[in-house]
Design a protein around this nucleic acid. Structure first.
Lengths: 336, 336
DNA sequence: ATGAAAGCGCTAACAG
DNA sequence: CTGTTAGCGCTTTCAT
């Protein structure tokens, strides 16, 4: 079958190509009668507008990209919801891409989206990536760094104040009476993790009475939480922490499971605070107190920031947005 | 700045546009010297190939789409891994899209990707969608239905044999001695769910001695598992099931948590089997026995099937692929 | 309200 | 090995 384009539609509807195009882009400027004929022809022929031609002519697309290290991470997935909703309102479509935390894939997606001519990119990454984004920007594709504050003033970013998050978590533990606090997290080479530790450390120092033990780990997943939990359960009670700040909820969930399974009471013997407030935190064995970033608003704000950078919205003074997290208190830190 | 295209590169490198294009597409056919000049010009100017022009000229793109109801669902996320890896091998890029289970968004993505001219689409959906896919197919965009066997012979699909999965789960419970089996799942309007029940029912009937109770639910999430678990714990022991087949792992995890929390022993009093074998199943309080679809291979096979449909690979006799699930036995059904 | 025509950036066929 | 050129499908002036 011959590929059906605007020309075939025009022929069948007995109008010119220009009129069909008008119908597609400014429906009001076409007489009702011809509009009807065109509509029928479109349906009869199964016409689908070719975006390549359109985009080539217009010089721009109406899509943005959202690149994440791990789509299945509820943190990014929830943000994606907000991103898509807000983008749709602005008449933009979102291409999602999963880099898997892999540098090569990240680069190849960045290149792909540049070639696609996306209007802009939202990029979450654990790697140093500002140089790539700067390069893309000079070539005409702006971006917003998501989840981490940019070093360069020229790179817009939107992030959580992790120092403040860590502080909230540790101070809460101290307030409910904990004095031997363990920080479970790593690697400290990741800025967000280091910041959370910094915040916790600030709270501990400020208290004057509490102390902080650091349990450095490689992977922030449930099974590592189990491992650390087993180690802690095995210690004599007087050498155990009485409060744990787990640097994410998966760790916290694993810790709680193993501690409770080994007869350590949570929160009576050890109180536990997580981070991210993923869905599983609320629904775990002992509902987990957690530091909650503003998920929904975050995606919306990210798109808004990107729109301003693109120039579809007025330029703000500030392009480095930092959100303050909340603390959601649940049973894992509710004593008495 | 004037948008830099192949023409500007050619001018700076002092060659013709055609040579630059050759360099881009058939690097071997360009003399080393000019190749070097062109490469330098590209870097100096920050040239990015415009895909719209390329695609318009070629008449096709090198991308495929993967549309899922929920990217954060580990089931789809794991498949996405395989999809991306295989697609990359075939020189294709993958656009991921999240329909959120929403009909309107699903439709809008289908339309978007058709206009984008993707080579093909992988589509997972809970809704009846074959008519849309058939329409897209007649208009030139083929697809593979993922996760559910297609009704129409013309629609390629790749799915799990859920009847067999349900059978495996129930038979296992019977084999370890369960006689009062509860099926926790719903809505039965979803084919996959109905199939799992069918399989379980087959195993029960076959046994001749066991009986099956159906607990129909609306949402297959952890908190519903908690609710059902609470209800079951409240029953007098003689009216409780001694084995539960939870139609997905989230339900199973919630059930186990609440049962154990209420003093019902798992697996001694009630054994529990889940479905999907998500990561959390292995790492839950009582590691959960689960029916495991072949995640990794699934994504790969989906892409391979799409390639054959597109015509980049030889046509197979069969375009309705069905994978058999395994049973992964863990502590939640290990008695004695 | 409608039509005619130019041209967006690129590739491949062809000529040299 | 390199240059010239036509044209992919579409939108948008500019006339009418």
């Amino acid at each position: 079958m011959p590929r059906v384009g605007i020309r075939e539609v025009a022929a069948l509807a007995d109008v010119s190509m220009g009129t069909v195009s008008h119908f597609l882009n400014h429906p009001t400027r076409v007489s009702a009668e011809k509009a009807k004929r065109i509509q029928e022809a479109i349906e009869k022929l199964g016409f689908v507008r070719n975006n390549a031609g359109r985009q080539l002519r217009l010089g721009r697309s109406s899509t943005v990209a959202y690149i994440v290290p791990d789509v299945s991470n509820p943190f990014f997935a929830t943000i994606a919801e907000g991103v898509e909703r807000r983008a749709a309102q602005a008449g933009l479509s979102v291409f999602l891409a999963n880099s898997g935390g892999d540098r090569a894939r990240e680069d190849s997606y960045l290149a792909l989206f540049e070639e696609q001519g996306v209007r802009g990119m939202l990029v979450a990454s654990h790697d140093p990536i500002e140089d790539r984004l700067a390069a893309a920007r000079t070539r005409g594709t702006p971006s917003v760094l998501v989840g981490r504050r940019a070093n360069s003033a020229a790179q817009p970013s939107i992030s959580i104040d992790d120092v403040s998050g860590g502080y909230l978590a540790a101070r809460h533990l101290i307030e409910i009476g904990c004095r031997r606090i363990a920080f479970v997290g790593g690697p400290l080479g990741i800025q967000q993790i280091a910041d959370r530790l910094q915040g916790a450390s600030n709270a501990v120092r400020e208290s004057g009475t509490a102390m902080l033990e650091i349990i450095d780990i490689e992977h922030r997943i449930i099974s590592v939480g189990h491992k650390v939990g087993a180690e802690l359960s095995g210690r004599p009670a007087e050498h155990r922490p009485d409060g744990i700040f787990a640097v994410n909820d998966l760790l916290g969930i694993g810790l709680v499971q193993t501690l409770v399974g080994n007869g350590v009471r949570v929160p009576e013997d050890i109180a536990v605070v997580g981070y991210d407030d993923i869905e599983y935190a609320e629904n775990s064995l002992v509902p987990l107190t957690s530091v909650r970033p503003p998920h929904e608003d975050f995606g919306i704000a990210a798109v808004d920031l990107l729109l301003t950078v693109i120039g579809d919205a007025p330029l703000p003074a500030e392009t480095q947005l930092v959100f303050a997290p909340d603390l959601v208190v649940r049973r894992s830190t509710t004593r008495g």
